[in-house]
């Protein structure tokens, strides 16, 4: 085995543990909501390979913009699960002092610069972040995560067009999860793939299996390299599925059961776990240890958040103006 392959293998295992952490976090978050210990929130269960596969390819100085379904991106970037839980619960120990809640969490120290919960808002902000980077001496890039719902909005097209015309180093990552809040993608788009739009703006793009983390890791590595060296935008579409409802709690009565079942059979975590086992990279014991590790971490994180205080009432009017 060459040195390079070793690095790749380690990154896949690391990505698997990140995906386990995201899954465990999101399910705990839904359970806390069900127990009325936490407010409504949006999970990314089923989409873990996209977050882990893309973000593992980024450098520390790259900047991320995300959306209302952000916990996976934050965890993949190294955010503390306890501070995310705390933010979701509106506690003062959250990354945004509890003022954001789940929907617009940003973490400056991790380069998660802007998060808008207005679907498409993150796309409107991305060229500006790219512009700041393009006018600096750095070769860092901006990465914006959005969904197929945002891709049906005008601002997606405005954003992609401006990034192309101005040669901005922005990696557009469309997590096409087939759902736009409570509406199936097939009701709002004739095309199956958002990547097709990019061609019209002169932006290279690719659609990949968003449930296979090795595929995402490879595609994202190429996409990140392109944006970093060419200083131009690229659109990577990770084709995936939102396994839970739009917002917790959600009985998913509107979801086609067969479609959901077929995607669950392609669960991104089971997929890579069994492949790594089959290839002799990981044993069942090692996998069990990884699960135990993330479960303990998530339990501790939830307790930290539950034990944390709410912000003082004075925080209602601070941080409005600089």
């Amino acid at each position: 085995m060459t040195a390079i392959e070793t690095v790749v293998d380690r990154s896949v295992t690391e990505a698997l543990e990140t995906m386990m952490l995201i899954r465990t976090f999101e399910e705990k978050s839904a359970a806390l909501r069900a127990a009325n210990l936490s407010p409504n929130m949006c999970t990314s269960v089923g989409q873990e390979a996209s977050a882990a596969g893309v973000i593992k390819n980024l450098r520390e100085d790259d900047l991320i913009l995300t959306n209302h379904r952000s916990a996976g991106h934050l965890l993949a970037r190294g955010a503390e699960p306890g501070r995310i839980f705390a933010e979701i619960m509106g506690k003062s120990t959250g990354y945004c002092k509890g003022k954001s809640g789940s929907l617009h969490i940003s973490v400056k120290e991790l380069g998660v610069v802007l998060t808008s919960t207005i679907v498409g808002g993150e796309l409107s902000l991305a060229p500006g972040v790219g512009l700041s980077l393009s006018m600096s001496k750095s070769d860092a890039i901006a990465v914006v995560f959005f969904g197929d719902g945002a891709a049906t909005e005008g601002i997606f097209h405005e954003s992609l067009n401006l990034a192309a015309v101005w040669n901005l180093p922005v990696l557009y990552v469309c997590e096409n999860n087939q759902w736009q809040a409570y509406v199936h993608r097939k009701e709002t788009m004739l095309a199956d793939h958002v990547s097709e739009f990019a061609r019209a703006y002169g932006v290279p793009s690719k659609t990949v299996d968003g449930n296979d983390v090795e595929v995402v890791l490879d595609a994202a590595r190429n996409a990140v390299d392109y944006v970093r060296t060419m200083r131009k935008p690229y659109l990577l579409e990770t084709y995936t599925y939102r396994v839970r409802g739009h917002m917790e709690p959600d009985d998913q009565a509107y979801v086609d059961k067969e479609e959901l079942a077929s995607w669950k059979r392609r669960d991104p975590i089971s997929l890579i776990q069994s492949r790594l086992q089959r290839d002799g990279e990981l044993t069942q014991d090692e996998i069990d240890v990884m699960w135990q590790r993330v479960q303990q971490r998530v339990e501790d994180a939830a307790q930290f958040a539950l034990d944390s205080p709410y912000p003082g009432f004075d925080e209602m009017t601070t941080d409005v103006y600089a």
Partner: peptide, 25 residues
Amino acid sequence: ARVRNTPLAEGIIAGTAAGAAATGL
């Protein structure tokens, strides 16, 4: 680089300004 024309698209002009302002411009 510092003085630019834009498309006639106010949403992306203002969004780009907000994104740039948050990151140092």
